[in-house]
Amino acid sequence: MVELKEKQLDWITYRDEPAKKASLEFEGGTIEPLEYVAVLGSVTKDRYYEWVNLYMN
Rank of each mutant, 00 (worst) to 15 (best):
M1P: 12
E6P: 03
Y49S: 07
E27T: 04
K7C: 04
I31G: 03
K5F: 15
E25C: 06
R47I: 03
T13G: 12
L24Q: 14
I12A: 05
L40P: 01
E25S: 13
E50Q: 07
M1I: 10
E32T: 06
E27R: 10
I12V: 13
V39K: 10
K5L: 10
E32G: 00
A38W: 04
V52I: 15
Y36H: 08
E32N: 01
S23E: 05
A22D: 03
W11T: 00
V39S: 03
V52Y: 09
Y36W: 15
Y55H: 12
T44A: 15
V39I: 15
T44F: 13
L4F: 08
V37G: 05
G28W: 01
A19I: 02
M56C: 11
D46K: 12
T13C: 08
M1L: 12
P33A: 01
K20M: 07
P33Q: 02
K45I: 06
L24D: 11
Y55T: 08
L34T: 14
I31R: 15
V2H: 09
G41H: 05
G29F: 03
V43S: 06
L34Y: 14
S23M: 02
M1R: 13
V43C: 07
V52H: 00
V43Y: 04
M1Q: 11
W11R: 03
V52C: 00
D16Y: 06
L34I: 15
M56R: 08
Y49W: 11
K21Q: 11
S42C: 10
E50S: 14
G29A: 03
K7F: 08
A22L: 01
A19R: 00
E35W: 10
A22V: 02
V2A: 11
E6N: 14
W51G: 05
W51K: 09
T30I: 13
L34D: 08
E32Y: 02
M56H: 13
P18F: 06
A38H: 06
L9N: 05
T30H: 14
E25A: 15
N53G: 15
K21V: 09
V37N: 07
R15W: 01
D10L: 08
L54W: 05
D16T: 08
M56N: 13
D46P: 02
I12P: 01
L40V: 07
N57K: 14
A22K: 04
E32R: 07
D16S: 10
V2Y: 14
F26M: 10
A38Y: 06
L40Y: 04
F26D: 07
Y55V: 05
E27N: 08
V37W: 09
P18Q: 10
Y49R: 06
L54K: 15
A22R: 03
E17I: 09
K5C: 04
N57P: 06
L4S: 12
K21T: 04
